[in-house]
Design a protein around this nucleic acid. Structure first.
Lengths: 217, 217
DNA sequence: AATACTTTTTAGATAAGCCTAAAATATTAC
DNA sequence: GTAATATTTTAGGCTTATCTAAAAAGTATT
């Protein structure tokens, strides 16, 4: 069995290692886990014995494929729950994280597969991050700037580049959230502004705004 | 803060005390918690200090109103999640308990109020047990035999009287589960049989069957 | 290459929740 | 009313996950 704390460590290691591609240092992990380096060293020993990570003293840890599988399963659950909270319970986009941090540790394969189905097998969560499938395969979504789309194109909002809070508030107001469909109606050549349709409503977006909205290619 | 283990103890004490009406003995609590009497004594000390229960040595524990509030909040969450699993994720009635045991400990008032709303403020869970409201008020549901309803009445299945497994299997097959809506279409006076609608499907039920289905008054 | 500084690990404690074995108290039997 | 039995509590330990303080190892400076 794997404890809740172990799951959280593995998730943090996975993220800090940039999906398993580089070693993670003790202090960085301590900061991410809001704990002290000594505690991290203890946990590193446990996770190494269980072969979720490999560890060379003083040189950081690397996640194993066994550890990666655990991390991806937790990430899958986290992102499915976030999608549920936003799509079904109409939570706003920025208030889901805390709750999903708890829900991601519920142990039940049946539950998560049913939830996936209920949500219509979503590919990305409300922040635009891709949802791993039940085998832990994760497809990086091809993201392009909305500004590159031609009139008539139909695609899905995947993320927002700039995290300026004024921009986020504006996009939220017009319903331009990750996961939403967006259609390009027209594009003005001289200033790069666009007319788009979201939720069957039309909006004019400046070039600046349309360069900050990332959509599926 | 209250721990997951403390919540589980309080829930068990609440149930064993028959909703707070009598004292609970150490050994009974140990059995319910699948643990040993010595461990229970330890926990009793903690819960007494926090004033969730009162304890007279060797004579068992009584739950306080503070403890009852915690227990009822957990029970509310448990029953709402069970309703969600059955109604929305189409879990069957008998496979929800284990998962709900985990979900009931998620800490978020906002989540549980949104869930309640999403489910349409249900009064009972799929087993027919009443769901406490957000203030911890629990209303014993008025249950009447389906056979007493007049044609045209619309109500909720609350429970099944007889626990004969053949009857249960039959009712399960036609979708006649607690929590489901049932409408009386017609009633034959001479033999007491009824025509009802469940899930938009029509069925003829014998007098015997309709006397075993309990519905909201 | 020796000193200073940073990072990591070790050593020794603590709190929660559990355990076994033994002591204390209550209940029942004679 | 005392002895036998059952229940509950105490005492002392264990594990997990945390901490602080100190030692060890690695890196940088001169």
């Amino acid at each position: 069995m794997i404890s809740l704390t172990e799951e959280n460590y593995l998730k943090a290691i996975y993220h800090l290692s940039e999906d398993g591609s580089k070693a993670v240092l003790t202090n960085d992990l301590a900061e991410a886990m809001h704990t002290k380096a000594a505690s991290v060293t203890d946990m590193i020993k446990k996770l190494s014995i269980k072969e979720f990570i490999s560890h060379e003293k003083y040189y950081g840890v690397n996640i194993t494929s066994k550890g990666k599988a655990v991390a991806l399963s937790v990430i899958r659950k986290h992102r499915l729950w976030e999608t549920f909270l936003v799509q079904k319970l109409s939570f706003s986009w920025d208030e889901v994280h805390e709750v999903a941090e708890q829900l991601e540790h519920i142990q039940s394969n049946r539950l998560i597969e049913k939830l996936d189905e209920y949500l219509g097998f979503p590919k990305a969560d409300p922040h635009g991050d891709p949802i791993p499938d039940s085998n832990g395969k994760i497809k990086a979504l091809q993201k392009v700037m909305l500004s590159t789309l031609k009139p008539g194109s139909d695609s899905l909002i995947v993320a927002v580049k700039d995290s300026d809070s004024k921009l986020l508030k504006y996009l939220d107001k017009i319903g331009a959230r990750p996961g939403k469909k967006i259609k390009v109606i027209d594009r003005e050549e001289y200033d790069g502004s666009m007319e788009v349709s979201i939720n069957s409503q039309r909006f004019f977006l400046s070039k600046e705004v349309s360069e900050n909205i990332l959509v599926t290619a």
